[in-house]
């Protein structure tokens, strides 16, 4: 979407004013004049948007690129319908989570565990491990005592 289109949608969504063709033309013309004045180009805007992405997602919502990226990170491949729903739901949820920014956490320490916690080591003793056959009982596919998967190296 170009910045001109974005502005038109923004006006329609936020003011409820339905933009007729001539009104839309008028808005675009004025915007172009402003853009000329500040030396704006689509290219520079994209780089700026990239670097700002992290802070703005609660406002802008989850777009197509981000949902694809999250699917890749999560090793999931959603159907187009599921994608639409996930985009919607995650945008709403992140919008809600955004309230955490109301709290000033400067100099507050992280708490990843309920208690001060040191590792509990066991004695280093040799003990029998679970039988291979027992573990393989649950394997979807197995061969020669190993988990079988599709060819991975040609």
């Amino acid at each position: 979407m170009t910045i001109q289109e974005k502005l038109l949608t923004y006006i329609e969504e936020n003011t409820g004013i339905e933009l007729t063709e001539s009104l839309a033309e008028d808005v675009t013309l004025r915007l172009n004049m402003i853009l000329d004045l500040i030396g704006y180009s689509e290219g520079t805007a994209e780089t700026a948007a990239e670097s700002k992405k992290a802070v703005n997602v609660a406002e802008t919502g989850i777009d197509d690129d981000l949902i694809k990226y999250l699917e890749e990170l999560s090793r999931l491949s959603l159907t187009p319908e599921e994608e639409e729903r996930a985009k919607d739901d995650l945008t709403k949820i992140l919008g809600y989570i955004d309230m955490l920014n109301e709290i000033d956490t400067t100099d507050v320490e992280d708490m990843s565990h309920p208690f001060p916690y040191t590792n509990n080591f066991r004695e280093d003793e040799v003990k029998p491990s679970t039988d291979r056959e027992l573990i393989l009982k649950n394997a979807p596919q197995q061969k020669d005592g190993c988990f079988k998967v599709p060819t991975t190296v040609e």
Binding site: L66, I67, L70, E71, L73, S74, L76, L78, E82, A86, D89, L90, I93, L94
Partner: peptide
């Protein structure tokens, strides 16, 4: 899936 993706995010 929703929670895995939110967590990945």
């Amino acid at each position: 899936k929703r929670r895995i993706m939110l967590g990945s995010f």
